[in-house]
């Protein structure tokens, strides 16, 4: 039971790192990232391949994975210069899918759906088998703490104010002399780096990675963590990540009580549950999601509908 708890906490840690990175990108800067799975995969495969195929030491491979996430994030953020936020979101989704497709199809390198086996582990041989999972949990927790401190520092620093200005209105920020693009690229790259780190930690923890883990669904789990916790609020999203993981894990046990559901159906049911919860939370938490500053009057240009909404104009 302790072993299970430790492993669950470790997985929650991966979620927390991803959620903190997303909060940096979206909650604070307003840049939508649906390609979280892509950065996660990039980190996992970079570190995994470097150790398993080229024999690099973990201590070198993991930082390289972080760097890969940083560079990929920076490059993608360059596109935000010319794109509306929702179209930028589509591009990030595309990045995620392309990463997954490469992992799936370049199977001579990545082993494709067979899965890449990774033997290397950080601190291998330094602790006995009983203790190692706890050591790994501490490692993951330290990265969570590091991500938390970095994101929180950025939030409180003058940079944070600039980021919020960009989120509210990038034209105004530009006029004020803030270099919007540079800030965006920096923030997105830092977010990408942490996502890469989460991927590398995941890879060396499970020691067997395959493309189906990195479906766009991952993005939904992380988005849900951030939304549940409250966008822009770093403490909230840690709790959010815990709640999402609890739902994911908790629903596993439904199968123990209802035997008509096989594993396939059960996993489908979990996704339905998560998706429905996300919709309900978004619906109930009016205004909790995006700080929509644009005023809208009844039947505004934005929504284009009046008839249904006369009372709350």
């Amino acid at each position: 039971m302790t072993a299970y708890l430790v492993s669950m906490l470790t997985f929650t840690g991966f979620f927390m790192i991803l959620a903190l990175a997303l909060n940096l990108q979206w909650g604070m800067t307003g840049m939508v990232n649906f390609g979280i799975a892509g950065f996660y995969a990039l980190g996992a495969y970079t570190s995994g391949l470097l150790t398993a195929k080229l024999g690099w030491p973990v201590g070198l491979a993991m930082p390289t994975a972080v760097a890969a996430g940083f560079v990929a994030g920076g490059l993608i953020a360059l596109l935000s210069l010319r794109l509306r936020e929702d179209f930028f979101a589509i591009v990030t989704l595309g990045f995620g899918e392309i990463m997954r497709l490469i992992a799936l199809n370049e199977d001579e390198i990545t082993e494709g759906p067979r899965g890449l086996k990774i033997d290397a582990r950080p601190f291998a041989g330094m602790f006995d088998r009983e203790l190692y999972p706890i050591v790994y949990l501490i490692l993951v927790a330290s990265v969570v703490a590091l991500a938390f401190i970095v994101v929180e520092c950025i939030r409180r620093a003058p940079l944070g104010r600039t980021l919020r200005a960009i989120r509210e209105d990038d034209v105004v920020a530009e006029v004020l002399g803030k270099n919007v693009l540079l800030h965006r690229v920096t923030v997105f790259a830092i977010g990408g780096a942490f996502m890469g780190a989460a991927g590398a930690l995941y890879a060396h923890y499970v020691q067997n990675i395959s493309p189906e883990v990195f479906m766009p669904m991952v993005a939904i789990f992380i988005w849900m963590s951030v939304i549940v916790g409250g966008a822009g609020n770093n403490w909230g999203l840690l709790i959010g990540a815990g709640i999402v993981m609890t739902i994911l894990e908790g629903t596993r046990f439904i199968g123990d009580f209802v035997d008509i559901l096989d594993a396939e159906k059960l996993s489908a049911l979990r996704i339905i549950l998560i998706g429905t919860l996300l919709i309900i939370i978004l619906r109930v938490k009016q205004g909790g999601l995006l700080p929509e500053q644009r005023f809208t009057y009844k039947g505004s240009q934005e929504s284009g509908r009046t008839e249904t909404q006369t009372s709350n104009a």
Binding site: Y297, K298, G299, T306, T310, S311, A313
Partner: peptide, 9 residues
């Protein structure tokens, strides 16, 4: 004028 036109209540 928007209130008269029904765009605001």
């Amino acid at each position: 004028i928007k209130t008269i036109a029904g765009l605001l209540s």
